[in-house]
């Protein structure tokens, strides 16, 4: 009895809190990519139901009707085949999968993270370097850089170019949609757009050691004028040269975001090149040989 009560209690808490479950992540989209992904999510769910629901309906009926204790039920131990049923159970899933395949082909192309988002405004170009355990954002056109916070104007497409200084990581702002891996010595692309102003959590989703859980950043979608002001403000900060960068690249977490007032155009490419040519052990992001890994 006690257990039952406990279970009810837990279930009640669950129900009460479940109101919140659609309020985070891509099911509460703040941009067109996440919105399209949400639509895909429900669309695929519905189509799949065509195959699943009959099963859920039939299962209890079959169990009830053909239970051993039921008297006078039909019993045909040698019944093993029916062309009609067989065609249905192969045919229906095949049709559904064909429909879903057509959908996947289209959606994968329209939602390709490499595909620029159409719009009247030119995309804002932001370069991203994943470090252990922080995120560096370089604005090559505005010539500023920030750590653990990224700002962009609402309604303007953002073109992220990403790489990693250390191990593979994955860049994601759940409420804006797609994630993409960042890989050392390689560059990946991601196009996102925020259609609602706000502060969104961004994170690494690929485990990379001790402070993985704390490797979060803030994505700020702000108005055009605010963005201009933001850039201006940051331009007064000290420059990001290779030396400052090497300090950042050491394994650490930062308690506060950092900003840099000027960056060279080439820094991002220099980082990519350096990772490709210098053994990782000689770079600041390596684990110290005596420390425990991870």
């Amino acid at each position: 009895m006690k257990h039952l009560l406990l279970c009810c209690l837990i279930l009640a808490t669950l129900l009460l809190s479940s109101c919140g479950f659609l309020d985070y992540g891509f099911l509460a989209p703040a941009g067109p990519i996440a919105e399209a992904q949400r639509d895909q999510f429900w669309l695929v769910t519905c189509w799949t139901m065509v195959v699943i629901l009959p099963f859920f309906v039939a299962m209890p009926i079959v169990l009830w009707k053909y239970r051993r204790s039921r008297k006078n039920a039909v019993y045909r131990p040698n019944w093993t085949f029916s062309w009609l049923l067989e065609s249905l159970i192969w045919g229906v899933p095949l049709v559904i999968v064909s429909i879903l395949s057509w959908n996947v082909w289209k959606a994968t192309h329209t939602l390709d993270p490499y595909r620029p988002i159409a719009g009247d405004k030119p995309a804002l170009h932001i370069q991203v370097v994943s470090l252990d355990w922080k995120w560096l954002f370089i604005y090559p056109e505005q010539k500023i850089a920030s750590v653990n916070v990224v700002a962009f104007p609402v309604g303007r497409p953002v073109h992220f170019e990403l790489t990693s200084e250390t191990v593979m990581q994955s860049f994601m702002i759940p409420r804006l949609g797609s994630q993409i891996y960042t890989m050392p010595g390689m560059v990946t692309q991601l196009h996102l757009l925020a259609s609602k102003p706000g502060e969104y959590r961004g994170q690494n989703t690929q485990y990379n050691g001790k402070f993985y859980a704390e490797q979060k950043f803030t994505a700020r979608a702000i108005s055009d004028s605010e963005f201009k002001r933001w850039i201006k403000q940051k331009q007064s900060h000290p420059p990001l040269d290779m030396r400052a960068y090497s300090r950042l690249a050491q394994r650490s977490i930062l308690s506060e975001p950092e900003f840099f007032g000027s960056v060279t155009q080439e820094l991002f490419n220099q980082i990519v090149e350096r990772v490709k040519t210098t053994p990782a052990a000689d770079l600041p992001g390596a684990a110290k040989a005596t420390g425990k890994g991870g």
């Binding site: 992540g25 891509f26 996440a34 399209a36 992904q37 895909q40 999510f41 695929v44 769910t45 799949t48 139901m49 699943i52 099963f55 859920f56 879903l100 959908n103 996947v104 959606a107 994968t108 939602l111 993270p113 994955s170 759940p174 949609g177 797609s178 994630q179 993409i180 989703t205 690929q206």
Partner: peptide, 23 residues
């Protein structure tokens, strides 16, 4: 298993996977 099949079909869809991969 059928429920798991549903989430499998969802994950097989690359756009959806971009949103829930590693989660």
């Amino acid at each position: 298993f059928v429920i798991g099949g549903l989430s499998g079909v969802l994950l097989a869809n690359p756009p959806i996977d971009f949103a829930v991969h590693n989660s």
